[in-house]
């Protein structure tokens, strides 16, 4: 089959960028979407044109590196599917598709469809962890975890940090990403000691990065390739609110040494 693509081309962060039209003949239905772009790029290189830059790595839907908008839908809008796992059998001959990078102030474009998602790393660095220095852990079975809690933690922990939630949200909010990590750790007994601190720090860092608010409309949930539920946002809201009311000014205790 043959496809017509309109692709966002932007040389670097300073460039203004524009949509460019490409024709891709000879698309096989068993190809993945990224393999189709590989074929297009090989042709571009042979013609001496700059190939389209897009992020990708594992190509099995788990690393979270790939992702762009296909026709206004993050990852193409197929349930539980990243763009690397999206196969061309979902499209038909003559389809005209628009490919655009994730759009958010917090995700500046690096080139073409590649964006900088380091804001997510900084949010995790702000509190998305359990502080447990190597070697100081008790036996794995010392703390039982209810199966239901372990399962809920796993549901939330499945987040791959691809940024589709931000891209799909009309407000470019990162509530689902932040909620997923808060919810993951909040469901485990190991995560309780830092629960309040984590919610406060992560939400504040999220705001500092320039992500706007959640309006509870559910676009992120529909776009999430790991089908993380809106429930995690409620969980992080609850944790934040509770933590904010319990927060005390930090005091410095001197003379410990």
């Amino acid at each position: 089959m043959k496809l017509i693509l309109h692709v966002w081309r932007q040389k670097n962060a300073q460039d203004r960028g524009r949509m460019v039209r490409y024709e891709v003949p000879g698309v096989n239905e068993h190809m993945s979407f990224l393999e189709m772009l590989d074929v297009l790029n090989q042709g571009l290189i042979e013609k001496g044109e700059d190939p389209i830059a897009f992020d990708h790595d594992c190509r099995e839907g788990i690393c979270g590196m790939c992702g762009f908008m296909i026709d206004g839908k993050a990852h193409g809008g197929f349930k539980g599917t990243t763009v690397c796992q999206l196969h061309m059998r979902h499209f038909k001959d003559g389809d005209e598709l628009y490919l655009e990078p994730w759009r958010a102030a917090a995700f500046p474009v690096v080139k073409d469809l590649v964006v900088d998602r380091s804001a997510f790393d900084r949010i995790i660095a702000a509190g998305g962890f359990i502080s447990v220095p190597t070697g100081s852990a008790p036996d794995g079975n010392a703390i039982p975890v209810r199966k239901q809690d372990a399962d809920l933690a796993m549901d939330a922990a499945a987040c791959i940090g691809c940024g589709a939630c931000v891209a799909a949200c009309p407000n470019a909010a990162a509530a689902l990403f932040v909620g997923a990590k808060i919810s993951h750790l909040a469901h485990l007994p190991q995560g309780q000691a830092e629960r309040n601190r984590r919610a406060l720090s992560m939400v504040r860092q999220m705001n500092r990065e320039g992500f706007a608010n959640c309006t509870n409309i559910g676009e992120c949930e529909a776009a999430c390739p790991k089908q993380i539920k809106l429930e995690v946002i409620a969980q992080s809201n609850a944790d934040y609110i509770r933590a904010a009311f319990r927060e005390r000014p930090e005091t410095v205790v001197s003379g410990v040494g």
């Binding site: 962890f129 359990i130 447990v132 190597t134 070697g135 100081s136 852990a137 008790p138 036996d139 794995g140 079975n141 703390i143 039982p144 975890v145 209810r146 199966k147 372990a150 399962d151 933690a153 796993m154 922990a157 993951h184 750790l185 469901h187 485990l188 190991q190 995560g191």
Partner: peptide
Amino acid sequence: DQCVAQGVPFAREYGGL
């Protein structure tokens, strides 16, 4: 032990182990 303490959500049985 280390990973459990970090919050890795390993599969559990109903008894919590």
